[in-house]
Nucleic acid binder design. Structure first.
Lengths: 228, 228
DNA sequence: CATATAAATGACCATATAGTCATATCTGAC
DNA sequence: GTCAGATATGACTATATGGTCATTTATATG
């Protein structure tokens, strides 16, 4: 215990109060993510959050201005995490085919490992275009997301870059990925979704390659396997 | 006026009261569709609806039990309309390529001509898998939708039909189509979306063909045009 | 240990919304 | 024209939720 405190002593010299506040805030974030996923962003009340976090209602307002603030924060956080997955890879990517494969994998793992964040992003995405009384602040994260996709794809599209074209492609990829998972959630059980991804993988990438007008350079591992 | 009444006389002998009630109900439906699209399903209140319809609040409850009932009704109606578009075509469809082309066109026109219904479906869709306090009744329509897609696609997938595979494909197609439009709405202006569809069309269909493991039988109109 | 500061609390108030119902308006039959 | 039945209305009640704040509990300091 003492050791722990010493080790953390130089860690920005957080007082015990600060750490308590941090813990509380984290509890609120975790609880909010849970209930947002369960009830939906709109249907969730502040008390849903504080009850789930096992905290008093007033506590919420010490940490967030209102529901929108915490929702925006979580959407932003989730996008950050997804972008981090999109950016980082150990493999060196040289072809469009590899790039798409990586994109698919990253999204898929995000969907599996951060299911709640996926659902949250899905919800937030919708809200963006509704002329709501609240929330224009949510547009930013999705723009960042689309721009990251553009950045990853553009090196492989060659030719002079028409921003409009790249944007279309990014929308297509994002739509494809998010759309598939979201409909799969309706039409299948979770295990079925999981067992579908592997066989879908090649077709998925091939179809996106085709979408980009480039067929994968005859990779041996599949001829006409068509094993979706 | 008299003529009108005579013409309509045999039309189920609707009394003027009946017609008044029908008109009122239609007004409510139209108003609800509008405000659902603007504010979102959850954020919309009953008074939003009646005000938009220029009717008293109590009137709403003479026609619908609650918000969920009218929402469910509208979702169902919208799915019906989309399915009708998917089913009906003057062209005789013999290849997968044609089938996909038709599917894309039908969805695209629905998106353009019934924008509000598209948004509504998109919202309702989202609600489905949330463990919500309300609404499991909304799941049905989307299941019908997926099943219709399966029905349209299955003749072209050949082989012994594994229902699971067909279901995957339906999810992929639905996800692709809905997903693209939804992200396009974020990333582009409406006119840009419109002007994107035409050039995207071929790539769209080709990519879906590829997704299904079948390439389009070398149609002449495009070699390597790649004009997305 | 005593005192001061920060964090957490939940009772409390104000407001918004769902849903009701007595009343008013419109319609149909005679 | 009049009466009965159907439809529409909006003031009203009950409830739920957002947001506040005086009080309590935990932490820091000397």
């Amino acid at each position: 215990m003492v050791i722990y405190m010493i080790l953390n002593a130089e860690k920005k010299s957080l007082t015990r109060s600060d750490k308590r506040a941090d813990r509380t805030r984290k509890k609120l974030e975790a609880a909010a993510l849970e209930v947002f996923t369960e009830y939906g962003l709109d249907a969730t009340t502040i008390e849903d959050i504080t009850q789930r976090a096992d905290l008093g209602k007033g506590t919420f307002y010490r940490h967030f201005k209102d529901k929108e603030e915490i929702a925006t924060f979580l959407v932003d956080l989730s996008i950050d995490e997804l972008l981090e997955r999109l950016r980082s890879t150990n493999k060196h990517i040289t072809t469009l085919y590899e790039a798409l494969e990586h994109l698919l994998d990253a999204h898929y793992k995000f969907f599996l490992e951060e299911y709640e964040k996926f659902i949250l992003l899905f919800q937030g995405r919708l809200l963006v275009k509704l002329e709501r009384r609240i929330s224009e602040k949510m547009e930013g994260p999705y723009d960042r997301y689309l721009r990251e996709l553009e950045k990853i794809l553009s090196p492989f599209v060659g030719e002079k870059i028409d921003p409009m074209k790249i944007r279309r492609l990014a929308c297509a990829v994002a739509g494809f990925v998010f759309g598939f998972f979201s409909f799969a959630m309706i039409g299948m059980e979770m295990e079925q979704v999981e067992s579908s991804i592997q066989p879908l993988r090649q077709n998925f990438v091939r179809s996106l390659s085709s979408f980009l007008g480039q067929l994968p350079e005859n990779n041996k591992e599949e001829k006409k396997s068509n094993n979706f």
